[in-house]
């Protein structure tokens, strides 16, 4: 498969994530769309790793593992972010009983 298919796929997922962030008001959904963006990046990384592996693989057999490990770390970070993020969302829900980000506009101008 040419790499551009994967690029388009990832960027498409990424863009859908962005559209989600832009159009939804539910903080949890927005957060999920961010996760989608992260996954798009992950997919792209993996695809590129295979591409490099094909191009340079003979000389550097472990080259592709770099990107895969990177993806692994992204998942680690994502997990940490999720725990913090959900904690914050829950805290807000406890205070205002809503997860609508449009309600959050005390801070402006």
């Amino acid at each position: 498969m040419p790499i551009n298919y994967y690029i388009v796929l990832s960027v498409a997922l990424f863009s859908i994530g962005i559209i989600g962030v832009l159009t939804r008001r539910n903080a949890i959904i927005i957060f999920m769309c961010v996760e989608l963006m992260l996954n798009a990046a992950n997919l792209l990384l993996v695809a590129f790793s295979k591409m490099h592996n094909l191009a340079l693989g003979l000389n550097f057999p472990t080259l592709a593992s770099d990107a895969q490990i990177f993806v692994f770390f992204i998942m680690v970070v994502a997990a940490a972010e999720v725990s913090v993020g959900l904690a914050i969302i829950v805290m807000i829900y406890r205070n205002i009983h809503s997860v609508d980000v449009n309600f959050l506009n005390r801070l402006k101008n």
């Binding site: 040419p2 295979k50 591409m51 592709a64 593992s65």
Partner: peptide
């Protein structure tokens, strides 16, 4: 030019 490069599918053991 690089977007025409191929990715190897279903092959290799790095993963």
């Amino acid at each position: 030019e690089s977007i025409q490069q191929m990715t190897q599918l279903k092959d290799g053991d790095v993963g």
